[in-house]
Design a protein around this nucleic acid. Structure first.
Lengths: 338, 338
DNA sequence: CCTGGCACTCGGCGCATACGAGTGCCAGCT
DNA sequence: AGCTGGCACTCGTATGCGCCGAGTGCCAGG
């Protein structure tokens, strides 16, 4: 176990390194933080911390920088989450409150997160599976061609074309529309398959084919849309670190284009709280020198999607986590209102 | 006027520079291109070209690189558009043909363009104003609360909430829905305002308020959606040029985040053909060392939106233009079919 | 267990040098 | 008149060298 002072030394190293972006030495530490001991003592502590793998020196005769393990300890034990100030909260609320539709909410959230953290922001669109159905609409575009429109409580709209095996009368259509809505409106997507199971039985034989087509399209839509969409912003922030730069930026941009990678990344965060993945903790190789801070957000008590930021492992964790948490909360509020 | 040979020299310089990314000297030119004259002669020609402003040297005693003006001449007079090969065309068609909905079409188009050109691709969503209405749907979510869903012939769907001044009966709603559709279905968005102008008159006084609310929301939607959306991809390609890099990449990423800038950029291309904006021809300062190749695309004969790529001025213009044109064509086809 | 002192390491920086690609110009040739 | 070979010149880049200083590890003493 590390002594209290050694933890403080680690904390000081992380803070200084994050601030200056340069390896930090024992002397600088004692000057900038009142540890109450001499540089020599700090040197001993640093040697110990290095033995334990919390810090490392880029080369002999240079200061120390935190390792992933060091950041991990810092995040878990040494740093809190820095709450947003009241004016910041107000600004967030105002900015998000001005959104006109779901796309706009997501777009604003991305911008906001990127600005607050000065890092790359990633926001997942509210997922279908965990939301509920607000309305299902069926339109006859042609006698045997329907359009299915699905509206969620988060304001998302999905539409699909349906080619029916046989023409479908206007009254049957109205009937189906009414029955469908009475069964699924207000229900969770996950429950829909069970709820519509026996619907075809209520119809004449001649219409059953069409009803089945509609239902299968509806269920398909629910499944397909699990390949969820994301919005990304703040990539220009990647350029804030001019030196280590060409090495790290390339793979990060590539990762950001691979939505699959990103979705996995966000998806990994299973627990209700915030998740921080540091450096090599990220499964994807290109993100080995970045950290990902993510959290779920949702309209009710339940998370419907995730959002987060991607930045260098050398990031201001308390501040970033504070911003991420605050934004997630307010997006949740906005979604609940609309 | 420049002699024929001098034009060939310019063409050779552009080609070599694009290939090697290094200033090209007189000797290398005579070796790689059979110009039939000696380096000394080429030197004279290069001096002349430099006087005219078509090429420049980064520093004394270095080779020459084309200026924006040089590229301009190259694009206008010296280079054609390199057509795609048959296998490439097939690959494009297959890839785009697999799309399931409009979002997917746009997403695939972006990926494709980025891959083909190895540059940053920008695709504008098909615009509302130039497209036609496929269907307008009205849903009663509550007695005095409606949802308007607008479906375009390009498969785009827009929805809006409407709070009515007074409750709106189910029969009136069906009536309005039918009247609306009979008037605007199949018509161009631009014509909609004129077509619905007198609709309120067909309704009882008690319903007119609600009808007016619906119409005004509909018209708002048409206008608002002129703030059109874009999709971007291939930003990782920005890192293909490791040296001049930190300087150019930052402002480009910033520009790409400013949708307004991009929309303007694409919007500038008014003519039917392809537009190439080279370096300083771009109004936006951050893009002064990049070129933008853009073209309109659309389902019918008419362009409904634009797409293009952003890359360094030192790009393979014939190849890029070929790819952009081919992709635009096939996207148009796909949209027309669906 | 902390501290001051001391020898040592090693990366970064400045400077001087050498190299070579490329140029401009000129005199001569066709 | 235009092309060519030759030549002196420029200047950016690469290379090698030496210095400097931050930072370390270790040790002896408080």
């Amino acid at each position: 176990m590390l002594s209290e002072r050694r933890l403080q030394v680690l904390r000081a190293i992380v803070q200084d390194y994050v601030g200056t972006e340069e390896p930090v030495g024992s002397k600088a530490l004692t000057e900038r933080h009142s540890l109450g001991v001499s540089p020599a003592t700090v040197r001993n502590d640093m040697a110990a911390l290095e033995d334990e793998g919390y810090i490392a020196q880029p080369h002999t005769s240079a200061g120390r920088i935190p390792t992933d393990k060091g950041y991990r300890l810092f995040v878990d034990k040494l740093a809190g989450v820095k709450p947003m100030t009241a004016p910041e909260r107000r600004a967030i609320q105002n900015f998000l409150g001005g959104a006109v539709d779901l796309d706009d909410v997501v777009a604003r959230t991305v911008r906001l997160l990127a600005q607050l953290t000065r890092q790359v922001a990633v926001v997942q669109y509210p997922s279908l599976t965990r939301s509920t159905v607000r309305h299902v609409e069926l339109l006859a575009l042609a006698p045997a061609r329907l359009m299915l429109v699905l509206i969620t409580d988060t304001g998302r709209v999905e539409q699909r074309m349906i080619d029916c095996p046989a023409p479908f009368g206007e009254t049957s259509l109205a009937d189906l529309r009414a029955r469908l809505n009475s069964r699924v409106a207000g229900r969770r997507f996950a429950d829909v398959p069970r709820l519509v199971e026996d619907l075809p039985e209520a119809f004449d034989a001649e219409d059953r084919g069409a009803v089945a087509a509609v239902l299968s399209t509806l269920l398909d839509t629910l499944v397909e849309e699990n390949e969820e969409r994301l919005m990304i912003g703040g990539t220009a922030n990647l350029t804030r670190f001019p030196h280590d730069f060409p090495l790290t930026i390339r793979p990060v941009l590539e990762a950001l284009e691979e939505q699959v990678v990103l979705l996995k990344l966000l998806g990994e965060a299973k627990e209700p709280g915030m998740t921080v993945r540091i450096g090599h903790e990220n499964a994807y190789e290109g993100l080995n020198s970045t950290s990902v801070v993510s959290v779920g957000y949702g309209s009710g008590g339940e998370a419907v999607a995730k959002l987060g930021v991607v930045g260098p492992t050398r990031m201001d964790y308390p501040g970033t986590m504070g911003a991420v948490r605050a934004v997630a909360r307010y997006v949740g509020q906005i979604l609940a209102e609309s």
